[in-house]
């Protein structure tokens, strides 16, 4: 079964590309046994994530059914979700310094 992307848990709001995806492409995105088409709005390199649903700024990013960070901007469905719009919530010595 050739797939373009995979969603690991049904609660996840991001999908992971398992091929290099081209802007405008309808990505066959696997969730369990289902294939759901998602039109990607940007080139998504292999291994990178895109929003599987519309994500609002400040919302938690869920992958493996767990929180992997927080959106620093709105991420519409199909758009690249990575360091430019997601921040980590852990190991943030920079935040601790600002608070001090």
């Amino acid at each position: 079964m050739a797939i373009d992307a995979i969603v690991l848990r049904s609660v996840d709001n991001v999908a992971t590309a398992v091929q290099n995806l081209k802007e405008g492409q309808e990505a066959a995105t696997r969730l369990d046994r289902e294939l759901i088409p998602v039109v990607v709005g940007q080139d998504i390199p292999y291994g990178h994530k895109f929003a599987f649903r519309d994500i609002k700024k400040g919302e938690n990013i869920l992958k493996y059914g767990e929180v992997i960070g927080r959106a620093t901007a709105d991420i519409p469905r199909g758009m690249h979700a990575h360091v430019q719009n997601i921040e980590s919530l852990r190991g943030r010595g920079d935040l601790q310094k600002e608070e001090a």
Partner: peptide, 27 residues
């Protein structure tokens, strides 16, 4: 890691990890 007073990103995940699509240490 935090005692250094910086965001550990770049160190963890590494630059290569980020290029590979890993966004945060949690992921």
């Amino acid at each position: 890691a935090m005692a250094v007073g910086e965001d550990i990103r770049g160190g963890q995940p590494t630059g290569g990890n980020i290029k590979g699509g890993l966004t945060t240490i949690e992921e």
